[in-house]
Amino acid sequence: MSDSFPDFFSVGGFLFSSSMPGWDGSEMAPSVLEQCRRTYTQLMQGLIDRKIDARHVARLDHYTASQSWLAERQQIRATFFGEPCGLASTGVAVHHPAGLGVTCAMIAHLERQSVTSVSGAAYGMPAIATSVELAGHLFVSGILKTSLDAWENVRNAVAEIDEIVAPFRTRRTRPVRFDVFAGSAEMIPQAQDEIFKAFGDECPVFSAVLPFARDSMVEITSLFAEQGELIALPPMSGTMEAIARHVNFHGDQAKKSGKQIARLDFRYPPGGEASVRQLFDSIHLSHPPACVRFPGIGSLAQTSEYGISGFLA
């Protein structure tokens, strides 16, 4: 990749991919559907190179220029991952640079296959799984709420996640991370409050304001673990300098406990694609991790801020 983050990074039995773009800018931009095929092809090649198949995939994260061609994207995904595909999935629209239609990232396991724990059909997602279990983790698909009432959407999304996870919760079950994608900045603290009430006030919550069709819409995805190895890189927002210090500090701390940063999730202001290279140049890790990157904002008051989270394994 041009920014030097690796396409794939494996640690602790897991395989993480960076964002795979459907178009690299080296030619006239292909159609968005052709870009879907290309990004899935790149992910599948990473699996083939490691002699594993699509059943080892637990989660796909999609960042698209529009959700208007969602049905067509799902049809293309089915040719690679089956239908219904036994994985959790998230898909949100972002302000990609002109010509880029989609990027996609993947989490898979090198040895184990994911197992559907709750079917997608049970929650109106017939093409995917609502949740899957893999290596002591429970991956939950993005729960999308679209009513005109923002507060109702937040409450219902968190309540639905609580309902999905309830059969699998034990005293050892812990939330690894929540991702909140909202149509307005005012929804972010509301979503955090609801998550803290339902799952405890130490839950890592990574958030972004994105261009949904309505400001009241929200999508929340989540990951839980009982005996799993994955830990969230604590989310934060701030300047690039603060982001780099945060990553370097937690990279050093992880090394002391025998872990590594496996994937960075980097939110940058729309139009700030060059900051991905700046991030790479500013971190000092012995093994650069995979990097998922997307344009978005953290709050309307600070549209220039950056955000970071990720996974340690």
Results as ranks from 00 to 15, higher is better:
residue 1 M to I: 12
residue 1 M to R: 09
residue 2 S to W: 04
residue 3 D to I: 12
residue 7 D to P: 09
residue 8 F to C: 03
residue 11 V to N: 08
residue 14 F to L: 01
residue 22 G to T: 12
residue 23 W to S: 06
residue 27 E to N: 10
residue 32 V to H: 10
residue 42 Q to T: 14
residue 43 L to V: 10
residue 44 M to T: 08
residue 45 Q to I: 01
residue 46 G to I: 09
residue 49 D to P: 04
residue 50 R to W: 04
residue 52 I to P: 08
residue 52 I to V: 13
residue 53 D to M: 07
residue 58 A to N: 02
residue 59 R to Q: 02
residue 60 L to H: 06
residue 61 D to A: 05
residue 62 H to G: 03
residue 64 T to L: 07
residue 65 A to N: 07
residue 66 S to F: 09
residue 72 E to C: 00
residue 74 Q to H: 07
residue 74 Q to R: 14
residue 76 I to L: 13
residue 77 R to K: 13
residue 81 F to I: 08
residue 83 E to L: 05
residue 84 P to I: 11
residue 90 T to V: 13
residue 90 T to S: 14
residue 91 G to H: 07
residue 97 P to G: 13
residue 97 P to C: 15
residue 99 G to S: 13
residue 100 L to I: 06
residue 100 L to P: 03
residue 101 G to D: 15
residue 103 T to N: 11
residue 106 M to V: 05
residue 107 I to P: 01
residue 110 L to W: 02
residue 113 Q to E: 14
residue 114 S to Q: 13
residue 114 S to N: 06
residue 117 S to M: 12
residue 123 Y to I: 14
residue 123 Y to V: 10
residue 126 P to D: 15
residue 129 A to E: 01
residue 133 E to I: 02
residue 135 A to F: 04
residue 136 G to H: 13
residue 138 L to W: 06
residue 140 V to I: 15
residue 146 T to W: 00
residue 150 A to N: 01
residue 150 A to T: 09
residue 151 W to I: 08
residue 152 E to L: 05
residue 154 V to P: 03
residue 155 R to E: 12
residue 156 N to K: 08
residue 157 A to N: 01
residue 162 D to G: 08
residue 163 E to T: 15
residue 165 V to Q: 04
residue 166 A to R: 09
residue 169 R to A: 06
residue 174 R to E: 13
residue 175 P to S: 12
residue 178 F to A: 06
residue 178 F to Q: 03
residue 179 D to I: 05
residue 180 V to F: 03
residue 185 A to M: 03
residue 186 E to G: 11
residue 188 I to N: 03
residue 188 I to P: 02
residue 190 Q to L: 13
residue 194 E to W: 08
residue 196 F to I: 03
residue 198 A to M: 08
residue 199 F to K: 05
residue 201 D to S: 14
residue 202 E to S: 13
residue 205 V to K: 11
residue 209 V to A: 02
residue 210 L to P: 00
residue 213 A to M: 11
residue 214 R to S: 14
residue 215 D to M: 03
residue 217 M to V: 00
residue 218 V to M: 05
residue 218 V to G: 02
residue 222 S to V: 11
residue 223 L to T: 06
residue 224 F to W: 09
residue 225 A to S: 15
residue 227 Q to T: 11
residue 230 L to H: 00
residue 231 I to L: 14
residue 240 M to P: 12
residue 242 A to N: 08
residue 243 I to H: 00
residue 245 R to S: 12
residue 246 H to K: 10
residue 247 V to F: 08
residue 249 F to Y: 15
residue 250 H to M: 10
residue 251 G to R: 04
residue 253 Q to C: 09
residue 255 K to R: 15
residue 259 K to N: 13
residue 260 Q to G: 00
residue 260 Q to P: 02
residue 271 G to A: 10
residue 277 R to C: 04
residue 280 F to T: 08
residue 284 H to N: 08
residue 285 L to D: 15
residue 285 L to R: 05
residue 285 L to P: 14
residue 286 S to Y: 00
residue 289 P to E: 07
residue 294 F to I: 07
residue 294 F to P: 01
residue 298 G to T: 05
residue 307 G to I: 15
residue 311 F to W: 02
